[in-house]
Every structure is written in C-alpha cells, then in structure tokens.
Amino acid sequence: MSLTPLDIHNKEFARSFRGYDEDEVNEFLDQVIKDYETLIRENKELQTQLISVEERLGHFANIEETLSKTIIVAQEAADEVKNNSKKEAQLIIKEAEKNADRIINDALAKSRKVAVETEELKKQASIFRMRFRTLLEAQMEIIGSESWNSFEEAAATREEI
C-alpha cells in the first residue's frame, strides 16, 4: 500500500526526552506533504498523457499497417498489370508476325501469278508476231506472184474501158 499525503499529515511521532524540535518536524512534514501531492498530481497527469500518446501510437500503428497492406496490394496489382501487358504485347507481336507472313505469302503468290501471266503474254505476243509475219510474207508472196500481175493487168484494162 502506498503512502498518501493524508497518511503523512496524520503521522504522529512519540515524544522522547531529547527528541527533535516539534515545529521543525511539522514544517518538514508539511513540505513533504506539498511535494508529495505535487508528485502524485504530476504522476496522474503523466499517466493521462501516456494513455493519450499510447492511443495515438495505436492509431498511427493501424494507419501504418493499413498503408503497408495498401502498398502490398498496389505492388501486386502493378505486377499483375505488368505481366498482363507483357502477355498482351507478346500476343500482339505474334499476331503481327502472322499477318506479316500472310501478307508476304500473298504478295509472293501475286508476284508469281503476274510472272506467269507475263510469260504467257510474251508467248502470245511472240506467236502473234510470228503469225503476223507469216501473214505478211504470204501477202507479199501473193503480191509478188504472177496471178497478182495478171490481176493488175485486168484491173488496168477495166479502168481503160
């Protein structure tokens, strides 16, 4: 059990023959009572402040824990977004490569088709030129033949008539 200011105030000492001066002892006890009351008051105030500070500390500890959890969740979300972005980028690249291959293959097929058509047109032009030359040569032969001369003479005779 702790000593209270009232205990100090009510304390009585036995008197002895050559004891202390009673007024001096009472004065000292009064000073002890005042100091002790002051210490008790300060102790209560400090306990109240301590409780307040502990409550604030608990509040800040909760905030810190919440922030830590939030940061972890945000980091996980960022990692997930990053991973999804990488996967999406890979899919886009694969799709682009497929499209590029398809476009190249289509262009090669068209190029081959044009080359085949060009060769075919060259052959047809050569055949046409040969046929045309043959036709011209045949016509030149007809023009240079005897029957053409007789035809010219007959036409000239008709004109004279």
Score class of each variant (00 low, 15 high):
T66A: 13
I51L: 03
E64H: 06
I71C: 09
E97P: 00
L46G: 00
E45D: 10
A96Q: 11
H59M: 09
Q49P: 03
I71T: 11
R102L: 14
E80T: 08
E64N: 10
V53A: 06
R102C: 06
Q47M: 06
E80H: 00
R102I: 10
E80W: 03
E88I: 00
T48M: 10
I92P: 00
R56I: 01
A77S: 12
N83K: 13
Q47R: 06
K86F: 09
I92C: 09
Q47C: 06
Q75R: 11
E97M: 02
E45P: 00
L67I: 05
R102E: 14
L50A: 13
E80M: 09
D79F: 02
D106P: 00
D101H: 08
Q49S: 05
E76W: 00
K82P: 03
L67F: 02
L91S: 14
T48R: 11
T48E: 15
S85V: 01
I93V: 15
K86I: 13
K98R: 14
T48P: 02
K82T: 12
K69H: 10
A89N: 05
K98T: 13
E88K: 15
S85P: 03
L91V: 08
L46F: 03
E97G: 01
L67V: 01
F60M: 10
K44V: 08
I103G: 04
T70F: 07
N84E: 06
A77W: 03
I93M: 11
N83C: 09
A89T: 06
I51V: 12
E55D: 06
N99M: 08
V73P: 00
K82N: 11
G58R: 00
K94D: 14
K44R: 12
Q90H: 07
S52W: 05
I63P: 01
A61T: 14
R56H: 01
L91W: 07
D106I: 03
D79G: 03
Q75T: 13
V73S: 15
K94F: 05
E95R: 12
S68K: 15
F60L: 11
R56W: 04
A96M: 09
N43V: 02
L50D: 07
S52N: 13
T66P: 03
A78H: 11
E88A: 14
I71S: 13
I104W: 10
K69C: 06
A100E: 07
E97A: 05
K69F: 05
L50H: 06
N99D: 11
Q49K: 15
N62W: 02
E55G: 00
E97Y: 01
E64D: 10
E54A: 06
I104G: 01
E65F: 02
A78S: 11
A61G: 04
L57M: 09
Q75F: 06
I93H: 08
L57H: 02
Q75H: 09
F60R: 10
S68M: 10
I72S: 15
I71H: 08
I93A: 15
L46W: 01
E80L: 11
N43S: 15
N99F: 05
N99E: 13
E97Q: 07
Q47P: 02
Q90A: 13
K69W: 00
A107Q: 07
A89E: 06
A77C: 05
V53H: 00
L46V: 05
E97F: 01
Q90V: 09
E64C: 07
F60Q: 12
A61N: 12
E80C: 01
I71W: 04
A77P: 00
N99Q: 15
D79R: 11
I63R: 04
I72F: 05
L67Y: 01
V81Y: 11
V53I: 09
D79E: 12
